[in-house]
Design a binder for these strands. Structure first.
Lengths: 264, 264
DNA sequence: CGACCCCTTGAATTAGATCAAATAAAGTGG
DNA sequence: CCACTTTATTTGATCTAATTCAAGGGGTCG
């Protein structure tokens, strides 16, 4: 199901969009200009293959809008999702050695792509850009390690609880709102059950059972298939078994991040 | 079991050792000098806690000798190993945001530590160093993603097979030799079964059973508890279920890397 | 030689995968 | 807007693999 992307070509209406890309904050005007010249803005419909496994080395770029799946097709036919990338995340691999994954659009996505060689050259020539890339890669490393901890959870329920927590903390702007009394999180899961199963290394059936278990235990209340209100955050944290999360801190942090977007 | 490290102090006998650190290859003499001034060479005995979870932000550095465990203590008392670091790998997190893991010596280790703030400043001021750090972090990111794929394997046997393959490819110099006829790999596992269990998100018992299963099936032949001769590499790859590995390519690659170390 | 540590083996239990089917949404075309 | 097709989710029953609990080797080191 590989479809042709909608190309905008490397031109200046993009400049307006690129303004909002945090990777570029703090770059020198000259670097920025060069980067914009190299940029290629594209959109893909949900389900489209952006890069197939095997030719993942031609492009790098960043997500502007929507959710991008990084996945690996295993020899038994299973597909494991390695990461979900949301706006401001980078994809691809500069200075690649191996690293071969497929990229698919989990929702309709808008991407800003750069031809890899050109981008690498730009990175090597512009320390300010290299610094920005380093920060971005460090973010990804944190996310990947966080994911290792998540997958290490032996129970599906623990992995699911962890997923909800990570989702809330990492991407509150995209997927979290606060309900009326401003004290309960309402989370929207950006992918369907099948994806979630591939992401949490389990099956749709097990996902479904865990979700229903959470509902029965009064941890969450579904608004619809994709969005849940968290009734008992502390309980969810206990199921996740991850000390890193603290209900009071988490809520504070999320409120702060949500507030930050309303201001500017 | 936190023990005091053997300090060498920030002085020049280290310079000799730092020569061999690949992170530093290609650095300008000035950068290198500054870095050496900041370096603090330490050794820790096997089992020692290098950094406890909670104060993981003071140092960064790299492994000179031995194996370092990066681990997370979970609230149920389990400890999950996130990564194994071997010579040339960096630990710690420059420009840290969160990222909080414990570091323990899996074997006797020799580390080259840098006070984090100072190192970060150095990185910001010296693009050549920043470039080197970027390459290192990219390596770690690859390793972490590889690990995500490994942990996604539902069967313990698959995870174990994958571990052996990753170990061989990633650190052939430290853990692989070729036997007499130069056609079979002999792998030495750098950690005991307990660690391996924590690494593969399972139990010692399950590890043991999988190992014995491999022996019965003629995939491997144990030389002792820690080292195995791979009798059927192709079979092992099939169990791992990871298309990324190809027996012919893998052997070639490993031979090449082993040859590379004998030359210079 | 005995104490200790690590690894292996065995039996019972449990969580999740698998197979099969029902129900619920979401589109589609009249 | 409704009947009809398609896709997503839930539920149930069975089977399998792994954890758990318990005990038995096999080294090594004092």
């Amino acid at each position: 199901m590989k479809r042709e992307p909608t190309k905008s070509g490397p031109m200046s209406p993009q400049a307006a969009i690129l303004q909002h890309v945090s990777l570029l904050d703090g770059l020198k005007p000259e670097t920025r200009q060069r980067l914009e010249a190299l940029a290629d803005l594209r959109t893909y419909p949900k389900g489209a293959t952006v890069v197939a496994q095997g030719d993942g080395l031609a492009f790098v770029g960043l997500v502007i809008q929507g959710v991008l799946r990084v996945e690996k097709l295993l020899s038994d036919g299973r597909q494991q999702i390695i990461a979900l990338l949301t706006p401001t995340d980078m994809f691809g691999r500069v200075h690649a050695a191996r690293s071969d994954y497929a990229l698919e659009a989990a929702t309709d996505v808008r991407l800003c792509c750069f031809e890899r060689r050109g981008f690498e050259k730009l990175v090597s020539d512009h320390p300010d850009l290299e610094h920005a890339v380093l920060l971005s890669v460090l973010e990804e490393l944190d996310a990947a390690r966080e994911w290792v901890v998540l997958l290490a959870g032996t129970r599906v329920a623990a992995r699911l609880a962890n997923f909800l927590l990570i989702l809330s903390r990492r991407w509150p702007k995209q997927h979290v709102t606060l309900n009326g009394d401003r004290n309960r999180l309402v989370i929207t899961i950006p992918v369907d059950r099948t994806d979630l199963a591939h992401y949490l290394a389990t099956t749709v059936e097990s996902i479904s059972r865990s979700v229903q278990e959470f509902v029965r235990d009064g941890l969450i209340q579904p608004h619809n298939h994709a969005t849940f209100e968290i009734l008992d955050l502390q309980g969810l944290i206990e199921v996740a078994g991850n000390d890193e999360f603290n209900s009071v801190e988490l809520i504070k942090e999320i409120k702060r991040m949500l507030a930050a977007q309303e201001m500017p």
